[in-house]
Write a protein that binds this DNA or RNA. Structure first.
Lengths: 229, 229
DNA sequence: TAAACAAAATGTGTCGACACATTTAAAAAT
DNA sequence: ATTTTTAAATGTGTCGACACATTTTGTTTA
């Protein structure tokens, strides 16, 4: 999930210049190094990275496909501006997609994958118990868990959509909105219910629980936002 | 739904060369003019369309983002090869996404939009009754209906995903696999139930019915495929 | 004849340059 | 001083050219 090279399955590691550029720019945008809404000057960026405009342009085109930048003809490209409304829309998307992923995972994960998932969850539990490790858990642990379930669906369309397209946009929100949440304990419990449903191969229940889980997460975000106003 | 110019919202109509190229290539691929799995030679295609390789390359990059072509570094681009497995995966995606769209549409469509949808459906009914108009109905009518519901969700992420990304890939399957179905009468009835749920603002039911509708459609495809073997 | 190698041909990745559009700065007019 | 017009500057869209990788062809060798 962390640093996949986007284009290649696994064969060739990050060869082309455009690939590296794309990864670099994506990181810079997601982490806010290049701020929201800022205009991207092709000549300047190309110079900064020591590449030609052509290569840069292809990289920008890919960023556009992932909805990290918006481009208007003859006016150039701007980094997207995140909004509360869009975040809610994304949560609705995730509810539908990851719900289906959980359903399929309950049907298609191997016994070994399920065991590994249980092990992972157990580690999370220990971390929470030990150090009340909120930091790690919510930032990486939650993502890991969801990631494995998506993979477990064995549906390549779903996997590509969630792990390539949506994932980075979501990461951008986490970075730039902070996304603090005191839900780690509850999230852990919800993960637990989910894994039980998957272990029991109860697809219907798995989907239901995943949707509830994501909806709870959304409500938490809504609450955090409201108290900020 | 038919020939939107992809990049622009509505302001500027298809200006850049790359835009036109992209639309032309997309059409050619979807309709099978450029056959599945065929290799794309950049110099040749560029010459045929009378453009430079640079412009063509950007167009190909967009096609890649829509999963209509696959590209491997230093080996070039190929038109995707459609498969039964992938089609099933797409149906699962649609079940999740359009189900959510129906749910949201029941909540967010205006009264006027609902009335228009009813009018549209009524027209479909007449066409079916009159001429047993299978041809039109299944090809365009069904798409129109689904399209309006997706729009009615008012969720821009969902709309972009379904109407831009997935739509053309699905169209490609319809073109190249034939996709004949004797389900038009039943599909019409299912649309009827759906519109009733939306009119009653019953979001839960709308999602359920849409998912059933798409699942039926998938089963029909599965059946057609099995009898072809 | 088949396999291994070498050389030519083709194709992709990357670059720099030019034409036109847009924005910014300056000058003119009210 | 404010607005309109004009000109300079910057930026995007498009092109053609070169370097390197891959494929194809032809040649040599077993």
């Amino acid at each position: 999930m962390q640093n996949q090279s986007t284009t290649n399955g696994a064969d060739t590691i990050n060869i082309t210049l455009t690939d590296r550029l794309f990864d670099a720019l994506q990181r810079a945008i997601v982490e806010g190094e290049i701020p929201q809404g800022s205009k991207i000057s092709e000549p300047e960026l190309a110079r900064q990275h020591g590449v030609s405009r052509g290569s840069l342009r292809e990289a920008i085109a890919r960023l556009e496909a992932r909805k990290l930048v918006e481009r208007k003809p003859n006016l150039g490209a701007r980094v997207v501006t995140l909004s509360y409304e869009q975040l809610i829309e994304i949560f609705q998307l995730r509810e539908a997609l990851e719900g289906m992923a959980a359903r399929l995972a309950a049907q298609n994960m191997t016994e070994m994958e399920i065991e590994e998932l249980q092990t992972l969850l157990q580690q999370h539990g220990e971390q929470i118990a030990e150090q009340r490790g909120q930091a790690y858990f919510q930032k990486q642990g939650d993502l890991d868990f969801h990631y494995r379930i998506v993979q477990g669906s064995k549906n390549n369309q779903l996997i590509a959509l969630l792990c390539n397209d949506l994932y980075h946009l979501l990461r951008m929100y986490r970075y730039q909105f902070g996304m603090r949440s005191k839900r780690s304990q509850q999230a852990y419990e919800e993960h637990h219910y989910l894994i039980n449903a998957i272990t029991a191969r109860d697809a219907e229940m798995a989907e239901l629980l995943m949707r509830q889980h994501i909806r709870s997460s959304r409500r938490n975000v809504e609450a955090v936002f409201l108290e900020q106003l």
